[in-house]
Design a protein around this nucleic acid. Structure first.
Length: 708
RNA sequence: GGCGGGAUAGCUCAGGUGGUUAGAGCGUUGGAUUCAUAACCCAAAGGUCUCGGGUUCAACUCCCGAUCCCGCUACCA
């Protein structure tokens, strides 16, 4: 494969509503950073862009809850996240933000270009509107009862209790969070991106074109979407917070965050170009640019289907690869900041890097372990014990120890200088080592080009392992015992240490993309300049000049103590406990607030009289095919039997509820669900634990009895 | 429910257009060694390759079905 003329590498934009954890780091930022550091060592033209994603409805919602402004939230988290990345050695060329005016302009340009070219469709629809606040309500501004789990403060886009994604129409008893009033449906106009027009080239491009060089999960996921038929997606929203839609007729509308966020990669590139006096255009227009998006698996469809469509319509290049990682679990459970089951980058930095006995080596230690367990093909698991093992038995014992013993021996047996190489005395062991050095370079290079970071890093450690073996075989400390009697002894020692030191220099080059701080420290010990880290120097054994005196060794890594691991485990448990308590309190408060501030509007007797409640008996119940939550019930109302489809399958076994009496809303308009017409609705009460209970008469009474 | 990904040694993971004894690192056990951060080096033990069928001379590898984990998605009056 020809080497592209330039690379534009992106890592998913972190949402600026809170701290980011090490799962995010392992999934996108770290592999991207390794890749870019490698490219730059190869002296290739590579730009690494990222930035905060600061729009969307979650941020203003959070602001409202915390009694602050959206701007204050993003201004709080943007710099913290940026600094966290720096502390962990993630070196973006630019860390931009989507609230920047340049981004707003750029996103608007994309919209305008697509709209003018007739690539967007305009559709009218009915959406919830708050009469009092005089505004359309974004999904997140509507609360109601989750139809899935019955949680009564679910948002219009997602229920935070069961995690189910929702649409506002699905909520039972929707309430505007702005005024506390019930919202009304009102006609509105939105712009849509008709993805269905692009199925053909997408299929050709991904399913055929990239089936071998893209990861299986990415191709599979895309194929699944394309085969399922792509739908038009709304590009605009009725919301204040975001990039304004650049049309006079679109007052009060912003670009949907999914549309504006990935364009953040483009605006970030523009800002980088301005800052560095470069031209940004080739990075997004020239076919000879390789665009690579590093993301987590939840982001596949956006980066492999939707954003490429936008790019293509705008005349840009499409990505050459979208290396997506799976997820990283933590000590047996999913990582989740809200549940307190996570390790925030910020926490790690404070607990390890900023400790007196920590320092930058612990940035590399984390990088090392996260790469070692990178979820490249399947979900992986972070354990503190695993972290300790990786650091102690590989970084300390294999890598750090080899470098240290090479330096110590060199100071003891070679006067602190790089010894001469006596070519005539080289044996097969020596030659094998030289070959292994060259081989390592080739292998690591190949693996990195193919996004196999885990294996690439393993190869580097493996070279250190081979180095330890070599030294063991040569045992210069034994040879030293015959220095007085054997004229060749010093020369043998020289050869061994000469090669060990050259190998150390190679280790610095090869480990640099993974553990940049460590490479730095090694450069310092070897008294060489940064330039030595150029990739072209790898594989060579003439990196350190003979006779050059080197510094005293410093330990590259220290061991992680059992007590430190125990402390982290305790901390995690405490944190998740606290979080549980907080969540419970929060829920309580919200429930109380909901009762106080959002009583349902007063109704007249006539309104109530419209309802026809009747007692019925369930005569049969069965699960609805192809639906997890639906039960199909036959209910005897005395004068007639009704078929009612109810979303209670998760709470009751069909056989257990046959014969039960229930209260039925008998005059509710019929509605089809999963092809079955539901002729009514069963009333249910939900207890604190979220369990559903039937509302039924004290004793069995006649079917059809009215309730009033 | 549909779709996608995964299930291989105690742990973390490789693997193959189907073909003799299924690999690595860590961990464990034993040995050797002392230059080195009790590190390194050598050796050994350890696997019905999730389960059940099928194709085949031969399946961990291909096909069908089941189970479990993860993600996307549908159903919710």
């Amino acid at each position: 494969m020809d080497t592209p003329r330039r690379y534009l590498v992106t890592a998913a934009l972190p949402y600026a509503n809170g701290l980011k954890h090490i799962g995010h780091l392992a999934g996108a930022y770290l592999p991207a950073d390794i890749y870019v550091r490698y490219l730059k060592a190869q002296k290739r033209d590579a730009v690494f862009v990222c930035g905060s994603d600061e729009h969307g409805t979650a941020i203003p919602i959070q602001a409202m809850k915390e009694g602050t402004t959206a701007q204050a939230i993003i201004d709080k988290y943007h710099p913290v996240i940026e600094q966290n990345f720096k502390d962990l050695g993630i070196e973006f060329d630019i860390y931009h933000r989507t609230s920047a005016p340049l981004h707003h302009e750029t996103a608007q340009e994309f919209f305008t270009a697509l709209n003018k070219a007739g690539e967007l469709e305009v559709k009218d629809s009915e959406q919830y509107y708050d009469d009092e606040a005089k505004t359309f309500l974004a999904d997140r501004f509507i609360k109601g009862t989750c139809p899935n789990c019955g949680y009564d403060s679910a948002y219009g886009d997602q229920c935070e209790k069961c995690g189910k994604s929702l649409s506002p129409d699905e909520l039972i008893n929707p309430v505007s969070t702005l005024s506390g009033k019930k919202p009304v449906k009102k006609a509105t106009k939105h712009w849509y991106l008709p993805l269905d027009r692009h199925e053909e080239w997408l299929r050709e491009w991904i399913v055929k074109g990239h089936k071998d060089d893209w990861r299986a999960n990415v191709v599979g996921q895309c194929k699944s979407w394309i085969d399922g038929g792509l739908q038009a997606r709304a590009v605009t929203r009725d919301l204040e917070w975001g990039v304004k839609v650049p049309l006079a007729e679109a007052e009060g509308k912003v670009l949907y965050v999914w549309f504006d966020a990935p364009i953040g990669y483009v605006s970030a590139t523009k800002q980088w170009a301005l800052d560095n006096n470069k031209d940004w255009k080739p990075y997004w227009y020239d076919k000879d640019t390789s665009l690579v998006h590093f993301i987590g698996k939840d982001n596949i469809v956006f980066h492999a289907i939707i954003f490429p469509v936008i790019l293509k319509l705008n005349g840009n290049i499409v990505p050459s690869n979208v290396p997506s990682n799976e997820f990283m679990n933590l000590e047996g459970d999913k990582m989740s900041t809200s549940r307190g089951w996570s390790i925030e980058m910020d926490d790690y930095i404070n607990d390890w890097i900023k400790k007196d006995n920590g320092g930058p080596q612990f940035a590399d230690a984390l990088r090392y372990y996260l790469t070692q367990i990178a979820p490249e093909t399947k979900d992986s698991e972070f354990t503190w014990k695993g972290f300790q093992d990786a650091v102690n038995s590989e970084l300390v014992s294999v890598f750090g120890n080899f470098v240290n013993r090479a330096f110590v021996l060199m100071h003891k047996l070679c006067k602190g200088k790089v010894p001469k190489l006596h070519e005539t005395l080289l044996d097969e062991t020596d030659r094998n080592l030289v070959a292994a050095i060259a081989q390592s370079k080739t292998t690591v290079e190949k693996l990195l080009e193919g996004f196999s970071f885990r294996e690439a890093q393993f190869e580097v450690i493996d070279l250190a392992r081979k180095a330890n073996k070599y030294m063991q075989e040569k045992q210069p400390w034994i040879v030293a015992k015959r220095l007085d009697t054997d004229a060749e002894a010093q020369q043998l020692i020289d050869n061994c240490l000469h090669l060990c030191l050259q190998l150390t220099a190679n280790l610095a080059i090869l480990i640099n993309p993974f553990l940049p701080q460590t490479a730095r420290k090694m450069l310092y010990m070897m008294k060489v300049v940064d330039k030595m880290l150029d990739w072209e120097n790898a594989g060579k054994t003439k990196l350190l000049s003979v006779g050059y005196s080197l510094r005293a060794p410093e330990l590259l890594f220290r061991k992680v103590e059992d007590a430190e691991i125990a402390a982290q485990l305790d901390k995690l448990k405490i944190k998740s406990q606290q979080s549980k308590v907080e969540q419970a309190e929060k829920k309580n408060q919200e429930q109380q607030a909901a009762v106080v501030s959002t009583p349902k509007a007063e109704i007249q007797y006539d309104d109530f009289a419209k309802m026809d409640f009747r007692i019925g008996t369930i005569t049969s119940a069965e699960k609805v095919e192809k639906a997890d939550k639906l039960l199909k019930l036959e209910v005897d109302l005395g004068t007639e039997k009704r078929t009612i489809v109810s979303g209670i399958a998760l709470h009751f076994q069909p056989e257990d509820i046959v014969g039960k009496q229930v209260t039925v809303v008998a005059n509710l308009a019929p509605r089809k669900m999963r092809g079955i017409e539901s002729q009514g609705m069963i009333l249910m009460a939900e207890d604190k634990a979220g369990k559903l209970h039937f509302i039924n008469p004290e004793g069995t009474i006649d079917e059809g009895s009215p309730v009033s």
